[in-house]
Design a protein around this nucleic acid. Structure first.
Length: 800
RNA sequence: GCGGGUAUGGCGGAAUUGGCAGACGCGCUAGAUUCAGGUUCUAGUGGGGGCAACUUCGUGAAGGUUCAAGUCCUUUUACCCGCACCA
């Protein structure tokens, strides 16, 4: 048969749509299966082939599940709020709404052309009022429960995008959107108290089936550490300076303290500090350094001793100096540390530079040449002397601290609270009113959605204020509590707000009474399988687990973890081996590929090109192999003879059905396709195939190349849609031949093969091996030391 | 520095988990078809040696365990990813 994809692909896409073939049913006798892929951000550039690979994995799984008789939910939507659209809109003068609608349209047509089996009746768009109404609703619920707060603090600020960024959005000191350097700025912003869920987020990982590196990255990001808070008293003012340490047992080795340059104790004691000018100068110098410079200067420690404040070591009673230095961060622990130069590399380097005493408290190293960070016997530590076990000495010290009331056990997380606002237009309005009389007042639930006003000018202000601040009709309002004049919050929510709960809305996308019906949530949750990119593991994945856990605690969802299983696909690199990007000009547009090769070839190729989880460069000539494969499948129509089973192909078929079925479950699509190619080669050798056999092959192929499969299925007289036909099953007994070729080794080297019946007894196998003329010649006149026979695999005869 | 990972032909990648290394595809070589390009078909394709049956070496490097190692153990090198002065 001539393979005319241009005709058959639109034909079957139309038929699937007419039949509603991929619409999930709410409630069904069939078992449910919820597959989720990360919904795209509809950028102006359209999709690239990386999106296609990302969706093709669970597309195959979804299609297989339907054929296996599951009620499958495989939805798609658009995460459409965000800066790129807004920046594009500013540049072109078009409204973000117009740009967004246009981009969504483009993405939709691209996705449909590839023939993905999404349930198009459940599309969500995070920028629609019906959707962000519930984003705001969840925000207000969090506000109600004390998880939303406002604080003046040092924040990550992107000077180019003119927005405050969360810690997650500024990884590596770079803006996640434009990659400029982040600066630290003191600002009053909204936070979500995600740290309150740190422990739950950590513990929940034990109950889910995530890829090990996905779990590990989340564990590292949460960064739990256990230790102690210790209060050092300050000689001059009688107040205390509080520190956090993971090694309270080294307290006797503390010879100085270090605080962050921004530590409030400096401001509080300006008058008392004699060298305040030097401290101010140092602080200013630090603020100027970029994150990059700070990390590049790791070896060289800098700092200034505070003249006028002295601390007292709470266990030894000794007076010790206090320094400011940028190696202590305000954002972790208390912004102050006790320095133990003998056993901490940074403290050691600092002490050497400033000529501070180094007291050994753990034996085992040479503190003259460097800090000793290993284990050993405690010395110079009064009641801890003689302890050799870290755990015991820490426990003993904690006991002592609590007895004396100078410290207590503590836990710290590297994860910080989520800076939850952007000073930009294209986002969900934060439903809060600032009232001069009542303070911060939430917008009543009945007034949701708080609509984003439609305006012409939405450029951000130079000073980092939101464009909404300029719209008086929006800003000025009445306080919902007292009714007097008040002002609206003008910041919007960050990009990640809408995506934190989208998987819940798919379950009931049109509900106007609730974010989703509880019965439907009970039926569909949790997501059975979630596949996405590694880059979202410490952003979206953490955020959405947090929101879900919050809703669970509220009693709104039936399970504590949203995603039962999470896998990740590897990137598609450009033909040059670099990451695909518009600026490098190496982006491949799926539409171009579909035009030339067809959707089925594209789908097959992105899965065949390599291990699904690894990055692989785009290689057009390699794609031709997939084209030939599908053409040869189509040509099988001309080889169909009779019904039933071709004896010479029976084992090959059962083997292939098994291999394809199992490989799909492990995301090993490349070997699943290779197995079908091998079967095709076997069929070509035989020269004919029965109608039943081709119908089996076509069903195996259907998740990968559904259009061609449907066409062949129809020509073969298959009933209904191939996409909904039963998945083939294999007979384990028929996956192996009755006779097997077994390699014969002499002294570990292969010298021949013998044909043996399946599961041949050892003695018979050895005898057959020895009967082989070449083997016989090699063992002639030698002593046989050992004879090994692994059934159906190998025979080894060891001689001397 | 800490954490995770990878290394196999000219290329992308297989290898039932210790059992014939290189499946499958690309590319390449030769031949057939074709005016030619493209397509398709047949045969071959890890390196060295041989007309050949065959032989020898071979999974980043060096050791080891084993009848048998890409796979397990020890040492080591290179690269990739994540976090990073986290107290």
């Amino acid at each position: 048969m001539k393979y005319n994809f241009k005709e058959i692909e639109p034909k079957w896409q139309r038929k699937w749509e007419e039949a509603g073939a991929f619409c999930a049913e709410d409630f069904s006798d069939k078992p449910k299966y919820y597959n989720l892929v990360e919904f795209p951000y509809p950028s102006g550039a359209g999709m690239h082939v990386g999106h296609i690979k990302a969706y093709s994995g669970l597309e195959v799984v979804s299609r297989k599940r339907r054929m296996q008789g599951y009620n499958v939910l495989f939805p798609i939507g658009f995460d459409a709020y965000g800066l790129p659209t807004e920046n594009y809109a500013i540049k072109t003068g078009l409204h973000p709404r117009v740009v967004t609608d246009r981009n969504i349209e483009k993405f939709t047509s691209q996705l449909k052309r590839v023939g993905f089996s999404f349930d198009w009746s459940r599309v969500v768009d995070t920028t629609e009022e019906d959707y962000y109404r519930w984003t705001q609703w969840i925000f207000l619920k969090m506000f109600e429960k004390g998880l939303v707060f406002r604080d003046n603090a040092l924040v990550n600020y992107c000077p180019s995008c003119k927005v405050v960024l969360s810690n997650e959005d500024s990884q590596g000191g770079k803006c996640d959107i434009c990659h400029s350097d982040i600066v630290q700025k003191s600002k009053t912003v909204w936070y979500l108290r995600i740290t309150e869920y740190a422990d739950k987020l950590l513990q929940g990982l034990e109950d889910v089936d995530y890829l090990p590196n996905v779990k590990q990255q989340q564990v590292n990001w949460i960064g739990k550490s256990t230790g102690a808070f210790v209060n050092f008293s300050l000689k001059e003012i009688g107040e205390t300076l509080r520190i956090y340490t993971t090694r309270p047992d080294t307290l006797f080795g503390v010879t100085f303290m270090v605080i962050a340059p921004e530590h409030p104790i400096i401001e509080a004691n300006r008058d008392r500090i004699k060298n305040i000018d030097a401290l101010d100068a140092y602080k200013e110098e630090c603020a100027k350094k970029t994150e990059f410079e700070r990390t590049q200067l790791v070896k060289e420690k800098t700092g200034v001793c505070i003249d006028g404040l002295t601390a007292i070591n709470p266990v030894s009673g000794k007076e010790i100096p206090i320094y400011i230095s940028d190696y202590v961060m305000m954002g972790y622990g208390t912004g102050a540390i006790m320095a133990v130069p003998a056993h901490d590399e940074r403290d050691w380097a600092f002490a050497k530079k400033f000529g501070i005493d180094i007291i050994e408290v753990i034996k085992g190293g040479d503190i003259a040449t460097g800090a000793y960070t290993g284990d050993g016997e405690m010395v110079n530590s009064e009641f801890l002397n003689g302890f050799t076990n870290k755990k015991d000495s820490i426990a003993r010290m904690l006991e002592h601290l609590e007895e004396k009331g100078i410290g207590e056990k503590g836990v710290q997380y590297k994860m910080k609270d989520w800076a939850f606002n952007r000073q930009r237009y294209w986002g969900e309005p934060i439903p809060i009113v600032h009232c001069p009389h009542c303070g911060i007042v939430p917008v009543p639930y009945s007034e949701l959605p708080l609509k984003l006003p439609t305006v012409q000018n939405f450029e951000p202000g130079e000073g980092g204020e939101s464009p909404l601040a300029k719209i008086e009709a929006y800003v000025n309002c009445k306080c919902p509590k007292c009714g007097k004049d008040a002002k609206r919050e003008t910041d919007t929510m960050p990009q990640w707000a809408g995506s934190s709960w989208y998987f819940l809305r798919y379950i009931d996308p049109k509900n106007s009474e609730a974010f989703a019906d509880r019965e439907k949530l009970n039926y569909w949750l949790p997501v059975d399988w979630y596949n996405g990119g590694m880059e979202h593991v410490t952003r979206h994945m953490i955020y959405s687990r947090f929101w879900h856990k919050f809703l669970y605690d509220l009693g709104e969802v039936p399970c504590a973890e949203p995603y039962a299983k999470r896998t990740a696909q590897g990137l598609i690199l450009g033909p040059d081996g670099d990451k695909m990007s518009k600026s490098k000009g190496n982006v491949v547009d799926p539409n171009d590929v579909v035009d030339i090769y067809g959707a089925d070839v594209l789908r097959t190729y992105v899965l065949f090109m390599g291990d699904y989880a690894s990055a692989a460069p785009w290689n057009e000539s390699s794609m031709k192999g997939c084209k030939r494969f599908l053409e040869r499948i189509a040509d099988l129509m001309d080889l169909v003879k009779g019904e039933g089973v071709t004896p010479k192909l029976e084992t090959a078929f059962h083997k292939t059905v098994k291999k394809v079925s199992l490989d799909i479950e492990d995301l090993k699509f490349n070997t699943a396709i290779a197995a079908m190619m091998t079967l095709l080669n076997d069929i070509a050798d035989v020269g004919s195939i029965t109608r039943d056999e081709l119908m089996t092959l076509v069903r195996l192929l259907c998740p990968f190349a559904p259009h061609l499969s449907e066409e062949l299925w129809e020509m073969l007289g298959g009933e209904g849609l191939c996409s909904l036909a039963p998945w083939p099953i294999w007979d384990e007994n028929k996956t192996v031949e009755s006779t097997v070729e077994v390699a014969v080794q002499v002294n570990g080297k292969v010298r021949g093969t013998v044909s043996l019946p399946l599961n041949c007894p050892k003695d018979d196998a050895i005898a057959a091996a020895k009967a082989d003329s070449k083997v016989a010649a090699l063992i002639e006149g030698k002593t046989v030391i050992k004879e090994i026979s692994i059934p159906n695999k190998i025979i080894n005869i060891v001689v001397k």
